[in-house]
Each structure stands twice: as structure tokens, then as C-alpha cells.
Simulated scan of single mutants.
Amino acid sequence: MKREPNVRVIIHDKSSLAPEGKPVAFCLDPETGFEWIGEYDITADELLSGAGGNNATKTEQAEKLILDLLADGKELASEGIEKVAADAGISARTVRAAKKNLDGRITSKCIGAAWYHALKK
């Protein structure tokens, strides 16, 4: 990856017996060593051509999605956020990680059995 020289991507290119897997990225940093990044939005053709694709990790995509959903003072339930994310190909686990990363920017409250989130003012 030109813009991220420490990032490496594993791409499932061909298989006649199994469905195609999603690309997965990891980082080889001289200071911190090996670290999994997670699912990576890039095709084999983009990677081989050097085009790069979308360099945002699934967690970063989930963070952006959450911020977009909660924009303009909206308050949404976790289930609603996870449904929209699932429709965008982002897992509930990734959404939870993104919410944790956004802890300083969003508020959460429990009403009954459901959790609701909003942007901090």
C-alpha cells in the first residue's frame, strides 16, 4: 500500500470449493510489531494495480457510519445502528468496537432493556 507502507493485506483470490473470503489486513510496525487491523475494503485487482481502494478499516467505516447516523442531534438505539451497519456489511462486533473508540464523542443511556446513543453536545 503506497500510503501505508507498514500495512499488508491477505486476499482470497481463488477457490473452487469455498466461498470467497474477505480481505484482511495487518500492520508490521518497527516499533509495535505485528497487529491485526481487520477486514479491509480492497479487491485483488486494486491491490495488484496499486490503486489502493478504500483504506478505511471496517472499524473506521463503522465509526463514520455511527457519527453520520447520530448527526443533527439524533438519538438511536444500538439495535438500529447495528441493523444499518449490517446492511453496509459491518458486523455488530465491529460496531461495538467503533462505539468504544467513540466513547469521548457519544453518550449512551439505557432505557428499559435497550441502549440509546447520541453525540455529545
Results as ranks from 00 to 15, higher is better:
99 K>S: 05
61 Q>L: 09
14 K>P: 00
23 P>G: 11
89 G>H: 09
18 A>F: 12
29 D>Y: 10
41 D>E: 12
116 Y>F: 15
40 Y>S: 02
82 E>N: 07
104 G>I: 04
113 A>F: 09
78 S>D: 07
90 I>Q: 01
105 R>F: 00
34 F>K: 10
1 M>F: 10
13 D>W: 12
11 I>W: 04
99 K>W: 04
4 E>W: 12
39 E>R: 04
63 E>A: 09
100 K>P: 00
76 L>I: 11
120 K>D: 06
97 A>D: 09
100 K>V: 00
96 R>E: 05
114 A>I: 05
96 R>P: 00
6 N>I: 05
12 H>S: 15
34 F>T: 06
20 E>G: 09
52 G>V: 04
34 F>R: 07
66 I>G: 01
88 A>M: 08
5 P>E: 13
102 L>F: 08
94 T>Q: 05
22 K>F: 07
68 D>I: 02
28 L>H: 10
104 G>H: 13
19 P>H: 13
79 E>Y: 09
12 H>A: 14
87 D>C: 05
2 K>F: 06
69 L>G: 02
12 H>V: 11
85 A>G: 03
86 A>I: 04
87 D>R: 13
121 K>L: 01
96 R>H: 12
47 L>N: 04
76 L>Y: 14
24 V>G: 03
94 T>I: 09
60 E>P: 02
74 K>S: 11
50 G>C: 08
82 E>I: 11
32 T>W: 08
49 S>R: 13
25 A>F: 00
92 A>P: 01
115 W>P: 03
13 D>L: 14
63 E>D: 11
47 L>S: 05
61 Q>H: 02
113 A>W: 06
83 K>C: 06
76 L>F: 14
12 H>G: 12
7 V>I: 14
70 L>T: 09
116 Y>E: 05
20 E>K: 14
84 V>C: 00
12 H>N: 15
41 D>L: 05
118 A>Y: 01
78 S>M: 12
6 N>A: 13
31 E>N: 10
61 Q>I: 00
78 S>C: 05
89 G>P: 03
50 G>D: 08
98 A>T: 04
46 E>P: 02
73 G>R: 10
72 D>H: 15
108 S>G: 13
10 I>A: 12
40 Y>Q: 05
3 R>Y: 07
52 G>D: 07
121 K>H: 00
57 T>C: 03
60 E>I: 02
79 E>K: 15
2 K>G: 03
54 N>Q: 08
57 T>V: 08
121 K>W: 00
63 E>L: 04
15 S>V: 12
46 E>G: 03
2 K>N: 06
50 G>A: 03
84 V>M: 03
5 P>M: 12
107 T>S: 13
26 F>N: 02
21 G>T: 14
117 H>A: 02
19 P>G: 15
69 L>N: 02
53 G>S: 05
50 G>H: 05
24 V>H: 09
46 E>H: 10
24 V>F: 10
102 L>V: 13
12 H>D: 15
52 G>Y: 06
90 I>Y: 01
25 A>M: 06
109 K>W: 07
25 A>C: 02
95 V>M: 06
72 D>S: 15
6 N>E: 15
64 K>V: 14
87 D>T: 08
51 A>P: 03
75 E>L: 03
86 A>C: 00
57 T>F: 01
